[in-house]
């Protein structure tokens, strides 16, 4: 663990609640962003954010990693990914419908897109977020741990308890699916490059 983090935790242990505030502030952006990708709404993400910190502090005696953020993400993973698995629909969105043969997902508007966004069709970031929300949970997790939190694959592999190659493979599957789903937006992205 970084010296600063260890000092802040020790200060909190001595009763300095501001020390905890500084730690929460330090890691709030990547941690909350990750949780937001799995939560149904900002309120749920907020609840998970608090729960992650409470569990981390409560179980700090079991923590022997060097990286506090990695430890926080491990707890966040348990909260968010388990919840995502519990919410798993009974039928697959990729399964073809009997009438048309088209996947069910094609009939469902992207969750994060408002009608205005859909009409404009230019908000690439929102398109990406909406398409990523339909990825299988392990791929979605790798995608956001890289994109939002900027974690290296080695750390992602630790969080997911898999090999680096598996984490890399999940990222590649995620990118392949996003490319397929966002083909027009991807072309736009390519054309925007110098």
């Amino acid at each position: 663990m970084g010296t600063e983090d260890a000092q802040l935790l020790a200060a909190y242990r001595r009763g300095d609640s501001e020390a905890l505030g500084r730690l929460v502030e330090k890691y709030k952006r990547p941690l909350f962003a990750f949780l937001s990708r799995f939560a149904a709404n900002p309120g749920e993400a907020d609840e998970w954010f608090q729960e992650t910190w409470v569990r981390a502090i409560e179980h700090m005696n079991m923590f022997r990693q060097k990286n506090l953020l990695g430890w926080l993400f491990r707890i966040a993973h348990n909260l968010a990914v388990d919840a995502a698995r519990r919410k798993k629909p009974d039928c697959s969105l990729d399964a073809p419908l009997p009438e048309s043969g088209a996947p069910l997902a094609d009939l469902i508007p992207a969750a994060a897109l408002s009608p205005a966004d859909e009409a404009a069709g230019r908000d690439l970031g929102r398109h990406i977020a909406a398409a990523a929300a339909r990825l299988p949970v392990e791929q979605r997790e790798v995608f956001w741990l890289r994109m939002d939190a900027g974690l290296p694959f080695k750390e992602i592999a630790r969080i997911q308890r898999c090999s680096i190659n598996t984490a890399l493979g999940r990222m590649q599957y995620a990118l392949a699916r996003l490319r397929a789903e966002l083909a027009p937006a991807y072309r736009e992205l390519q054309e925007s490059q110098p």
Binding site: R29, Q50, L124, G125, I128, R146, D148, S192
Partner: peptide, 26 residues
């Protein structure tokens, strides 16, 4: 293209401003 993809991802809003106080209270 990969770099642009990373740059295009929107950042969600942060936690509630009083999140740290609520964690400390819990």
């Amino acid at each position: 293209q990969l770099r642009a993809l990373a740059g295009a991802v929107p950042e969600p809003a942060g936690p509630a401003p009083d999140a740290a106080a609520r964690i400390a209270a819990r």
